[in-house]
Amino acid sequence: MPLRRRILIAKAGLDGHDRGAKIVARILRDAGYEVIYTGIRQRPAEIAAVAIHEDVDVVGLSVLSGAHIGLTRRIIVALAEHDATDITIVVGGTIPSRDREKLIELGAAAVFPTGTSTAQILDGIDSLFAADNEKNVHVGPYAVSDYTPPTHAHKTR
């Protein structure tokens, strides 16, 4: 029996707009993924705790508020603090083109900006798992992953 992949769709921070996150959750579910949705206004530590508790393979972070870099960083740090660096992070929402590479450098495996088609989202998620299968390395609790988020010093202004 094939492994059913688990994906957590999360809305972090004060962002209360979740229509897109719910649509993404539904298309992933309809494609055969097991999807858990956190609801709105979750703290990064709460998202990490749910991801660990639910043994998810991927956290899909949806951000429309402009706080995508800080929230992504805090979720990656929270996962690392609990030795859960094997959980892959993807980010979607209102992501300016100038920030997409920054998110990848932080440790996000993929970025899906507003306007990404549902087919492109599915292809992107499918390719994450296909790449893991080719490397014989799986995300999630099933095996050790080579995903390790970079460490960053906290900078204050």
Rank of each mutant, 00 (worst) to 15 (best):
V50F: 07
S62T: 09
D57Q: 11
A51K: 01
A80I: 09
G70D: 15
L61A: 07
A78S: 14
G70T: 14
D55C: 08
H53I: 05
G70Q: 15
V50C: 06
E54H: 09
V56C: 13
D57E: 14
I52S: 01
R73I: 08
E54Y: 06
I75W: 00
A78K: 07
G60Y: 01
A80G: 13
A78V: 10
V77M: 11
D57Y: 03
V59N: 14
A78L: 11
H68C: 08
A49K: 01
E54W: 00
S65A: 15
L79A: 10
V58L: 09
L79V: 09
I76P: 00
R74A: 15
P44C: 04
T72A: 12
A78M: 10
R43Y: 01
G70A: 15
V77R: 07
A67R: 12
I52Q: 06
G70K: 13
L64I: 14
G70C: 14
A80L: 13
I52Y: 07
G66P: 09
S65D: 12
G60L: 12
I52W: 01
A80C: 12
E54F: 02
D57P: 09
A80N: 11
I75R: 02
E54G: 05
E54V: 06
I76S: 11
G60H: 10
T72H: 04
H68Q: 14
A78Q: 09
V63Y: 02
T72Y: 02
I52A: 05
H68K: 03
P44I: 04
V77N: 05
H53L: 03
V58E: 08
S65Q: 13
H68R: 08
T72I: 00
R73V: 05
V56M: 13
H53D: 10
A67N: 15
G60N: 13
E46G: 06
A80M: 14
V63S: 11
E54K: 05
G60A: 15
A51E: 08
I47C: 03
E54R: 08
